[in-house]
């Protein structure tokens, strides 16, 4: 009977582990509104938006319930949008533990597109991977708001080079 209980516990642990591998700390990010202070020369008539706008927005990615020997790759993908005015770039900053991330196979700065692209390559538990967002190559906005939806997917194995 004890053995049966042990088997059930192990099975439950496994199921729970599968359900909590990849997590992000934010669901919705609302950066500061982009205004005349963001122009290439702030508050200057005739100017356009600069090449890069730092959104001052971050979130934490984490990978849990994974064996220390298991290699994984987080892919990032932008869902298609018809109103996108800029490219959006995600950057991996501080990560803990640092040995978890494979620097050679990680794209620390990644311009997102609608195809899932390898982003972070790692092994074992990632307690915290801080990612920040910026806009690139913006034209003048035609509308007052835009949305970018980013999907992170984790798969076993290192990221392809």
């Amino acid at each position: 009977m004890k053995q049966v209980a042990l088997l059930i516990c192990i099975t439950l642990l496994n199921a729970n582990g599968i359900a909590q591998n990849l997590q992000s700390s934010e669901w919705v990010i609302n950066p500061n509104t982009i205004d005349a202070s963001d122009l290439a020369i702030p508050y200057t008539a005739g100017e356009v938006l600069p090449t890069t706008i730092n959104l001052q927005a971050t979130e934490d990615l984490s990978v849990n319930n994974v064996s220390n020997q298991v290699k994984w790759c987080i892919y990032a993908q932008l869902t298609p949008s018809t109103s996108a005015n800029c490219s959006i770039v995600v950057t991996l900053g501080y990560n803990s533990p640092p040995v978890c991330v494979d620097a050679l196979k990680t794209n620390y700065t990644l311009e997102l597109n609608t195809v899932a692209t390898p982003f972070i390559s790692g092994k074992g538990t990632l307690n915290k991977g801080v990612v920040s967002y910026s806009l690139d190559n913006c034209s003048l906005p035609e509308t007052s708001s835009e949305q970018y939806q980013i999907v992170y997917t984790i798969q076993t194995g290192s990221c392809p080079l």
Partner: peptide
């Protein structure tokens, strides 16, 4: 157990809302 706990195409989604001020200068 560890192999069963490996990632299985799990996903998480983030939505970023960009707002533009009504700039006219």
């Amino acid at each position: 157990a560890p192999s069963l706990a490996q990632p299985q195409n799990l996903q998480t989604t983030t939505l970023i809302n960009i707002g533009y001020s009504n700039v006219s200068i």
